[in-house]
Design a protein around this nucleic acid. Structure first.
Lengths: 253, 253
DNA sequence: CCAAAAGTGTTCACGGTACACCCATGC
DNA sequence: GCATGGGTGTACCGTGAACACTTTTGG
């Protein structure tokens, strides 16, 4: 397990050690450990707030404390694969929107050792959700974004970075749909933006704008089981959106 | 050199090994190596094009090939510190704009070993530039962004990610000023945007817009040594920009 | 006096914003 | 019939876009 890349570090701790699998000289030096951590957001359309998925740690340090789901990157998997695997193992989630957020490398962010973590941020449709913790998470639960417990390590600052990213990105990329069911009403879409952007929006202007963009499919279907006039359902037409983007269209709320 | 973080990986390759400095049980498992790489952009106002700073590698693999400046992260430095150190060692640059770009973790991105790299992107004022390679770069040079040599490793895809980021970010954050001298003319500022955004801009509209934003200092100074009417010089007022942002102002070109 | 770039206003079209009432449905 | 949210149009204003000529300076 010795190697070197692009260029040498300062030289300290470096010595020629062995030939590796490609038979080139490599160097040995101490390596930080590498983990991934995931900030998972969900949307509570009833309670009208944004939710955060946390797990309860069952190992030291921070045993029994809440933390972002995550864990070590293995040698034979990409960073994204590691994030996907950890999410499945610790929360049972799969097939969700995932994007790399930022890499946190403060020297003392972990009390045990030098550990660098690549943070991901994830959006899930909370309806088709079924949490079941495996492996080393004894518990997983959703918390309101403005009322969550103390977090382990530097996870609070990772979370804050993710919130800033979400708020920024939701305005100019159609990622909000990842938080809604496949079929949704325009009111639900509006509530999504109102929650994430922490603002009120005018109903008529919102509908005019979003419909004029032309990437929503108007379905031949309406809401069920509501005690008032049922709203029409829509779905996001990803292909159409791609075409529009190619043609120079600019999404913005 | 054994440890573990947030949660365990799959379990394979893991065993209890030793107590570390905080006297908690830790695990041993193989770790990817960790490097940083920097995409450094400069602006050539005369030739009117964007430039890229590369180094010539003097070690295998890709010996004598061009690559992004970068190298291994040491145990006692943050990721950003590593990027700053490598830039100084390999190119002599210091005190430049630097921001984290993306972390690349494909399993086979380096032929020797599993190496994950945290890419940074940097902007330099090319006038106050003086390149001198130390350490392990035998050479450093600027290339036009649309005419550069073959790059080592996956550095071309890192570069492409950086270009996308630059083009996207320059439109809604005042990072362009990092590519200009402290004192610049409005025409130079316009050329900057025309180069980066690969578009033409109307002179009158551009001036109206940028001046109306109210964060440029109009200096009592004009260009020197030009064979035509000398233009007024301006500088970017960072403090003023901060105040505007706090007040809800939105920068956009 | 010529070349080169600096500097300067107005008009028009479009998109954003503000704003209020009737309709459909379930209980 | 009443409570609840669904659904709809217009007028105004401000910003973005298009567009051409005069001024200054050095050589």
């Amino acid at each position: 397990m010795a190697s070197m890349e692009s260029n040498l570090p300062g030289g300290r701790n470096s010595k020629i050690l062995e030939r590796n699998r490609t038979m080139e000289y490599t160097y040995e030096y101490p390596r930080p450990a590498l983990t991934v951590d995931c900030v998972v957001f969900g949307l509570d359309l009833v309670g009208k707030n944004l939710k955060l998925l946390l797990i309860r740690r069952n190992l030291e340090p921070f045993k029994d404390k809440w933390a972002l789901p995550g864990g070590f990157v293995q040698m034979d998997e990409t960073l994204e694969d590691a994030a996907i695997r950890e999410l499945r193992e610790e929360t049972g989630l799969s097939n969700i929107y995932l994007e790399q957020l930022y890499t946190f490398g403060a020297v003392d962010r972990d009390p045990r050792d030098r550990i660098v973590t690549v943070a991901y941020f994830a959006l899930v449709k909370m309806n088709d959700l079924e949490l079941h913790a495996d492996t080393d998470a004894s518990d997983a639960a959703w918390f309101a974004i403005d009322d969550y417990p103390m977090l382990s390590f530097d996870h609070e600052s990772i979370l804050n970075t993710a919130i800033v990213r979400l708020r920024g990105k939701v305005r100019y990329q159609p990622i909000g749909f990842e938080l809604l069911p496949e079929k949704f009403t325009l009111s639900q879409l509006q509530i999504l933006y109102e929650i994430v952007l922490e603002t009120g929006l005018d109903k008529r202007n919102f509908r005019k704008k979003i419909l004029s963009m032309g990437f929503l499919n108007e379905l031949d279907e309406i809401e069920k089981d509501v005690s008032h006039r049922a709203a029409r359902l829509y779905s996001f037409n990803k292909e159409r959106y791609g075409e529009l983007i190619k043609a120079g269209f600019n999404f913005e709320i």
